[in-house]
Design a protein around this nucleic acid. Sequence first.
DNA 1: AAGCGGCTTCCTGTATGCAGAAGCCTGCTT
DNA 2: AAGCAGGCTTCTGCATACAGGAAGCCGCTT
Lengths: 228, 228
Amino acid sequence: MASGFETEDDGDDRGLLSDRIRNALTDEIATGTLAAGAALDEQQLADRFGASRTPVREALRQLAAGGLVELRARRGGVVARMTPERIMEMFETVAEIEAVCVRLATYRMTPLERSHLIELHDLSQPIVEAGDFDAYDSFNRQFHEAIYHATHNGFLAEQAIAVRNRLNAFRRTQLRQGERLRRSRDEHEAIMQAIAEGDGEMASRRMRAHMLNAATSLRRFIEANKPT
Amino acid sequence: MASGFETEDDGDDRGLLSDRIRNALTDEIATGTLAAGAALDEQQLADRFGASRTPVREALRQLAAGGLVELRARRGGVVARMTPERIMEMFETVAEIEAVCVRLATYRMTPLERSHLIELHDLSQPIVEAGDFDAYDSFNRQFHEAIYHATHNGFLAEQAIAVRNRLNAFRRTQLRQGERLRRSRDEHEAIMQAIAEGDGEMASRRMRAHMLNAATSLRRFIEANKPT
DNA sequence: AAGCGGCTTCCTGTATGCAGAAGCCTGCTT
DNA sequence: AAGCAGGCTTCTGCATACAGGAAGCCGCTT
């Protein structure tokens, strides 16, 4: 998430109401519970969260600033509606940013970080065998974020996480396509290989391909389920 | 500042109050009118803008989501305080993103866009001769944004602009250092050369170097003016 | 004299009230 | 019957009111 807020992890009972609402809405949008284009009525949301409109409004403003929600002046807000073109643009952007990250990480990561990453990667094997999509999604997130942090550039890591989060709903969808889970892990394997060899450029190219494969998988899914 | 947005300055009655406040604060932070670390008292800002606290709060939330302001729960907000380390991280991030952009742009730009970029670059010559920092800053922005758009990836362009905007104040400072203006243009020249040859990788490396040179120039300035 | 604790005061966070705009529905006109 | 106009409804945007936490201050204790 773009910085600026004290976000303690989601065990949130205490904390600001507007932050809790923001986190809840972020989650619902990311998981698709709130579909793209869904209208966001302030009073309705306020009732649902047992709050007044004020914290809801603040949450919506923050989400709008993050691009998850579109606010049209005096006409209310809707969950950001994304065209297939825009989704592809976002995937390409993530792919390029991830490619940058893995290149920097290859050159900068400490032995400890490298060890941690290898360990993480090894853990994904049984998950793939079991075909556990949710577990793999969670692992995948950890894997990529470990790479972000290994760049030793906190700002870049934040940006990467923020952009990645906006693609959450789509990435999860895409993982459920056919053999994508196993192929995803194979691609990770190839990336790990390049990292182990200290070849940042190679790791970068493989990461870009990895992300674009995911995008292609998603595009196929979108076109297969096209309503028209 | 040389805001490319058509946010008509103070004569603006139209539009949302919270948006006007947000734009005004963005501007003041970017130009340094509001120094980093400055406390942002809601009531005080409300009085200054002749509004109530409500739109001020909404503006602050949006700025926090964009990273320009830090909000500590129940303790008010301050203009994001950036350490030299963080500024360098931001510069590195911008450098990498710009490098990505110019590579994609080289391969994707239309002849019209290439022509426009060349024209823009040519216009910078007399500006450098005159040593007009403000004009060059404005040109520089146009030059880089033209490259963003030539990627034909709207989302990537938005991200690039957003990150770049957060460095506004520092980039302007840096341009005022010694021969930096002329060297900046020389580096643009080298980038244009690579674009003309259709060598995206070369353009990318040169762009990265260009941005890191700017960062180095800024770091020298910061250390030279270090209070301690 | 120094440290601590309670109090006071200010400021944030939330709720509610009010005005105006956007959209809709109804009824009139052609 | 279709189109338009005007009023009505609903929701947003802003202001104000209220409650609770945070920081500073003053006095008390040792």
